[in-house]
Design a protein around this nucleic acid. Sequence first.
DNA 1: GTCTATCATCCTGTATACAATTTTGAATGC
DNA 2: GCATTCAAAATTGTATACAGGATGATAGAC
Lengths: 235, 235
Amino acid sequence: MTLISFDPDETDDRGDAAGGGSSVDRLYEAVREMAVAFDLKPGERVNEVDLARRLGASRTPLREALNRLAAEGFLTFQPGRGFSCRAFTPREVFELYQLREVLETAAVRLACAQATDAELDEIETFLDQTGPGSDGRPVELLVTLDERFHAAIATLARNAELARVLDNVNARIRFVRWIDMTKRAKTQAEHRAILAALRDRDADRAADLTARHIAKRQDQITQAIREGYARIYVD
Amino acid sequence: MTLISFDPDETDDRGDAAGGGSSVDRLYEAVREMAVAFDLKPGERVNEVDLARRLGASRTPLREALNRLAAEGFLTFQPGRGFSCRAFTPREVFELYQLREVLETAAVRLACAQATDAELDEIETFLDQTGPGSDGRPVELLVTLDERFHAAIATLARNAELARVLDNVNARIRFVRWIDMTKRAKTQAEHRAILAALRDRDADRAADLTARHIAKRQDQITQAIREGYARIYVD
DNA sequence: GTCTATCATCCTGTATACAATTTTGAATGC
DNA sequence: GCATTCAAAATTGTATACAGGATGATAGAC
């Protein structure tokens, strides 16, 4: 079973990109990564001919990919002016964090009722294998592992649509989560506490732990965004 | 202020389609309506040249619109086989209803904390103006009014992203909501009860009323889908 | 009558061309 | 120095062309 993987290099395709499929899927993935990592700067306009040439395709499939990404909130679109990278305001990030909290607490409640003991074993094995602390490992890796844990919980909720929206929201705030991860010490301990609540089938406790694990105050977000901008524009 | 409108003909644009804007926006709206109403049958493949001709455009902007709709879950996409209307299985609808319940209860809780008394007055006026029962009015109108009420609550939550996802989910299950509306008698009474809880700033009660207003059991959904298919294929 | 293979047709995926609009930058006036 | 105007350049929006693959029909074998 492949509920959750330990290999940080394993490419977690989201079901799209059927092997060797259309070029739009490839372009979509490539530009999504650029937008998630703010390789495209916030608010920056996308030059279609440039980007198409760099990605080895023509404008037609590229624009199709850009339209998908705009529908998913990674880009914005203005008629006559084309596509731009999403903004990165404290308010927007706050709303996304709020939405994330709503969805993750709902997911963990559903998982409490739906997950099998074997699946919870699998998550525990994952936590054992990936070690307790950060001990000098790159932040990128820690973010990936954190993402894996939360995605696994979403899977256990047995609601593909909820998992899809959650994946979208988490990708759009990955940059802030990256900053946040540099300040966390007890991520895994919190994950283990959530898992224990799942084992006890205690939905209220699991939801409460998850909410406190995620929730951010407006001022914390503002500070993280400040650091995020520094990181984006240093290169 | 235009939190909520009484005029059922008022076109509720979702912020896109800047007046006279690009043709993609127009095509997007047109095909979205077709998909929501299952004017495109579930699973049916979209013929691009046909549809483009009927909508008075070429395939290029049409495909951009189709890509947006696929990203939003109204259509599916398979490389080499193009776009199809989404399926309509009990499981998918159940998951969407579950997600809707999560989002609407969260929205009403936030609205409890955020809404002004004036805004709640406005909703009460809306309920007064739109009358207590169905009394022979077309179901289409009742669904629109119900949608308006719930959208207004989402607005009061002051979370644009949550409102956006909720709008998407509600559109995708509008067909089942249509069937459901033919069986409801006390919709407005339930809306008034939710409003009263908002006035009392009683988040728990408001959330509980909202959940019971929305929640569907699997067997109810299966039955509604059965009736939905009958309606789709009768014409 | 049913299954299979082959061919013609249809449809999708992508590149390219061109019109229309926006942006840029220089020249001019204040 | 700063704003304004105008033309050149760049960029987007859409139509069209064509190659490659999928679909469907027909003919033949069993």
